[in-house]
Write a protein that binds this DNA or RNA. Sequence first.
DNA 1: TTGTAGGCGTTATCAT
DNA 2: ATGATAACGCCTACAA
Lengths: 349, 349
Amino acid sequence: MLKKKYTIADIASMAGVSKGTVDRVIHKRGKVSKKAHEKITRILKEIDYQPNLVARNLKKNKTYRLLVLIPDPEKDSYWAPCVEGINTASREFQAFGVMIEVFFFDPSSTRSFTSRSKEVLRNKPDGVVFVPLFYQEALTFTEYCEKNNITLATFNSSVNSNSARSFIGQDLHKSGRVAGKLMHMLVPGKGHLAVVHMDEVYKNAIHMQEKEKGFRDYFDGADPGRTIVTHKIPEKNIRKIRKSVREFLELHPEVSGIFVTTSKAYLLAETFPKGKTGIRVVGYDLIEKNLECLDAGSVDFLIHQNPRQQAYLGVSYLSEYFAFDKKIPDNKLLPIDIITSENYMHYLE
Amino acid sequence: MLKKKYTIADIASMAGVSKGTVDRVIHKRGKVSKKAHEKITRILKEIDYQPNLVARNLKKNKTYRLLVLIPDPEKDSYWAPCVEGINTASREFQAFGVMIEVFFFDPSSTRSFTSRSKEVLRNKPDGVVFVPLFYQEALTFTEYCEKNNITLATFNSSVNSNSARSFIGQDLHKSGRVAGKLMHMLVPGKGHLAVVHMDEVYKNAIHMQEKEKGFRDYFDGADPGRTIVTHKIPEKNIRKIRKSVREFLELHPEVSGIFVTTSKAYLLAETFPKGKTGIRVVGYDLIEKNLECLDAGSVDFLIHQNPRQQAYLGVSYLSEYFAFDKKIPDNKLLPIDIITSENYMHYLE
DNA sequence: TTGTAGGCGTTATCAT
DNA sequence: ATGATAACGCCTACAA
């Protein structure tokens, strides 16, 4: 049934006191007699008082500055959807006095991160959402923000698992297990498998390791005898990458399934020697070139990390915190979406 | 950059008129001199005036009644997550004056739908979110609501594709294609495939047909020679279902993959004759028994229709419409989530 | 310790 | 046709 909406005035008259007193109790500002305090507390509980957030927000009438610090999508298109997510949240919350601005840093340069983060701080924001790509620099930044009362949320990578800060991302170990499961379905026989780390300099090696662990973990349980080899390709130069892939495949002709732990599955798929078909590939991230590989059949599955949603949620959490005093969740682990040629379009917003 | 937030008072002083006049222009209430009207309109455009929704909402100070009419989760647990989604939205919007109540109908009885829908109407709600399970009855209901200025949103099934009403759901044809793709990966050889409709009386046969079409459509393109047989099991009695499944499998011993177009894949999986392993199954919906089958390996993939999110969005859209005058999207097609034993936990909220 | 008096931005009413 | 004013619910400052 529709409960009546009680206002502070209602409560005040019920308790036989003034609005001010009720307000003091609600906000625990003290300076209230024990008797009044008890009576009011009881009434509040009884009617399950819910403050009118609209009125509260109107009164506050403050505009908040929320800055977002993420890698430049021009340098790595993986981040492009994040900008969309941020813009969506921005449109949604500007009506509630939250102003959002985005800063980009070069994901291959810690110096770029440091300088941009300083710029962010010079803006004296109320809150910051950022991607802690570089461990040490992120830590410094985080500490500074905490000292200066800047509310933080992170996404994509987590700085420090035992920190209480809000983090939005995925469980990488589980995502490796999902890749394992998919690979198992794709290569049900005895074909050898490979985990290939196509390492971009800036990405923390821990991510790839976690994914590999999950992948192996899955097979330890489901198919313990399976041969799984690991191969690292730390090159940036495309020619060298191709060479490395070719050599690896020649060395391991029995490999019939490859798990690429980064978003570069397309680089691997492009390199398959002509005629050498039938190798199954599972990779990450819905970037253009990977999608083409899905369509062409050279990549079978992609795992979607949902960067758009990660960014959207990060910004939304802080905005709701500012605008409506909502609690910010410590941790939000997004689902591990499985993508094929037939369903990717629905994930591109 | 931070644009200054202009208020009506600001505009009034800029135009050299009073707040009342500005308000009349903004709301096209007339009774404004041509000169004043022009001047104010120009200023509004110039500064791109955005009204403060919070203040507006506070002033309106109306509480809206939003009723939700869905199948009873007690009768079919598929609907249980919807209730969670509704409750989440309810908590979120009650602070903004939207009161939400849920009504259940028996999904196997059109009479139940009719009687509950009348009850809903007797409550004179401002808006209704409902699942139009029964075509004719839903149409009647819809028409009544439109005549009586009750705002509508539907989810899960769509009443009428060319209607402008808000609908949240999935593209069933595409979801059949996804099932096809998955099945193709699971049964890459020449094994025969089956589409099994485990028909619950109340579910519109059109749904299952759409899914089958999508499934066949996929194979027409990807593997045209494939044998695909269709089997209907309209029974409700478990014994009869089992019998039907057994007979079907005996009649078609070459079937090595089955696509179940309803949420009853578990019923089929449970029935496999002992020892007859290796049949791959793709089904729908994350209900408890299906998840057990995923764990046991008797079902390989499930397609998630995200009922929780569907209900959540339906309620949110109407709530935001009432509370903040937001436009309600006509159509929202949710992603077609692919689920295995390794990733289902993240989709259970 | 308590009560009262604004004011946030918008809107509706009433007087001019 | 226009302007002044009160009210929505909450919060803060200040007066008692």
